[in-house]
C-alpha cells in the first residue's frame, strides 16, 4: 500500500542548543530540514541527504549523528546541539582557532560536520593522525582540503594547537 493522502502532522517538544522548542512536523521531515527550515539553524549543511557526506552532522542525545538520517519526529524528547550551539558554548573554540590558523577550510560547506565529529573524537582520546583520518572518513570535503583539516585537528588532539 502506498500512501497518497497527506499524513497528519505530529507535535514534538525538543531541546535545541539548550532551548526548549515545540513544533509541528511532518513524519517524513528529516531532522536536518527541521533544523534549517523551521528553526533557521542553517549552520547545519545538507549535502547528499542519504548519509554519505557527513555535512549535516549534529549532536543528538550526546553523540554525533547525521541529521539527514534522523526524522524530525525522533527529536521529540531528545537533546540536540548544532554547530551554532557548540560554537556559543565554546566547546569548539580551540578547534576553530586551529582551523583559522591552518586555513583548514576552503568553501566551508563541510566544516560544521567536521568540527563536531573532530570534537567528539578528540574527547574520546583519539590523537594518532591515522586514527583521526579514519574517524573523519565519514566527512567529505569536496574541496579536498584534507591535509590542512587533519593537521589542524591533530594539533588540537595533541594538545599543541598553537605550534
Amino acid at each position: 500500500m502506498i500512501l497518497t493522502e497527506p499524513v497528519a502532522p505530529v507535535t514534538i517538544e525538543t531541546t535545541v542548543n539548550g532551548e526548549t522548542v515545540r513544533a509541528v512536523v511532518s513524519p517524513r521531515q528529516s531532522l536536518a530540514d527541521f533544523l534549517r527550515d523551521d528553526l533557521g539553524l542553517t549552520g547545519t549543511r545538507i549535502g547528499c541527504e542519504h548519509g554519505v557526506c557527513g555535512t549535516c552532522t549534529v549532536v543528538f542525545d550526546g553523540r554525533t549523528a547525521r541529521s539527514c538520517l534522523l526524522l524530525a519526529v525522533q527529536a521529540d524528547g531528545a537533546t540536540i546541539e548544532t554547530i551554532e550551539g557548540a560554537t556559543r558554548s565554546g566547546r569548539l573554540a580551540s578547534l576553530q582557532a586551529a582551523f583559522r590558523a591552518r586555513s583548514a577550510l576552503q568553501c566551508g560547506f563541510c566544516t560544521a560536520g567536521v568540527l563536531l565529529t573532530a570534537a567528539e573524537v578528540i574527547e574520546e582520546g583519539v590523537s594518532d593522525p591515522t586514527a583521526l583520518r579514519h574517524a573523519l572518513s565519514g566527512n567529505l570535503c569536496r574541496c579536498t582540503g584534507y591535509q590542512a583539516i587533519v593537521e589542524a585537528i591533530a594539533k588540537v588532539a595533541a594538545g599543541t594547537p598553537h605550534d
Partner: peptide, 23 residues
C-alpha cells in the same frame, strides 16, 4: 526504524515506500 542508518537512505531514495514507520 531502529538506528535508521540503512532505512533512512532507502526511504530517501524511495527504494522503500512503507505506509508506516514503526520507531
Amino acid at each position: 526504524l531502529a538506528g535508521g542508518q540503512s532505512l533512512m537512505p532507502l526511504l530517501a531514495m524511495r527504494l522503500a515506500r512503507p505506509a508506516m514507520v514503526i520507531d
